[in-house]
Computed example of a mutant assay.
Amino acid sequence: MPSNSPSIPNLELATIAGGCFWGLELALQRLDGIKYTLVGYTQGLDKEVKPNYEQVSSGNTNHCEAVIIYYDPSIVSYETVLRAVLDRVDITTVNGQGRDYGKQYRTGIYFHTIQQQEIARRILSEELIINPKYKNNKKIKIATELKPAKAFWPAEDYHQQYLEKRGQSAEKDNDDEIRCYG
């Protein structure tokens, strides 16, 4: 997987899963420095090529819903991107987030470079120490995957910018509640 945009080399690439991709995408769209988002499927079985929503939802492909972003590191750091994602998810929940459960809704940070891997590993371990929602539980384990980025298959067009198309603002630094619905 590449680590930079082929057409705009100063933009870096990140792939992140955090439950339903609609809400995660909108949260990332609102982050200053994010230039492009695309929702889709990743981390599936290598034999599965171009999976669709129905196949991924069945749980048989091992794919998860994810967002791929191109961001400008002169505006927003990879660390800031990850911290914004971790504010939205529970890193200890196995195979789900919020009301969505199934392997396709697992959380993951899929790194494109060794530097991204190191930053993600550090941030995940710090999260258990600094975030009050985890602080008092000594037996807690991180369920969020930290793996190399694999093939990313764009989701169907109707999934792209789904919440924005339905009236929720993607304006930078908007802090309105994100409402996910089907």
Rank of each mutant, 00 (worst) to 15 (best):
V94E: 07
E118N: 15
A66Y: 00
I123H: 09
L26H: 05
K103A: 10
V67W: 00
L82N: 02
E171A: 13
T113W: 11
E54D: 14
R99S: 11
A155V: 05
A14R: 05
K135R: 13
K50H: 13
T37K: 03
G182W: 13
L45A: 12
I123D: 00
F152V: 14
P51T: 06
I123F: 08
Y36T: 11
Y162I: 08
L26Q: 04
S74C: 14
Y158C: 06
V81P: 01
D175E: 11
G33C: 11
L45R: 13
L11M: 04
V81S: 01
H159P: 04
G167Y: 09
E127M: 07
K139Q: 10
P73T: 08
Q168Y: 05
T61S: 07
I114A: 14
P6I: 11
R106C: 07
V81M: 06
G167W: 10
E171M: 08
A66V: 06
Q116K: 12
Y181L: 07
A27Q: 09
E25H: 02
R99K: 14
S125R: 14
R99Q: 14
D72R: 05
I123T: 15
D46L: 11
N174W: 04
K165Y: 09
K133H: 02
T113N: 13
H112T: 09
V94T: 08
L163E: 04
D90N: 15
I123Y: 08
L146D: 10
C180E: 12
E65W: 00
Y101K: 15
Y162E: 05
D175I: 15
Q29I: 04
R121C: 08
F152D: 01
A66E: 00
V85E: 02
V89F: 00
G19S: 03
E48C: 14
R83A: 04
L82G: 02
K35D: 08
A14M: 07
N62C: 12
I69K: 03
E145D: 15
S77Y: 11
L24A: 02
L24S: 02
N174A: 03
M1F: 13
Q97M: 01
A120D: 04
W153Y: 15
S74V: 13
I16P: 03
K135S: 13
D173Y: 08
H112W: 06
L28M: 06
K141M: 10
F21S: 02
E65F: 01
L11W: 15
R106D: 00
V81W: 00
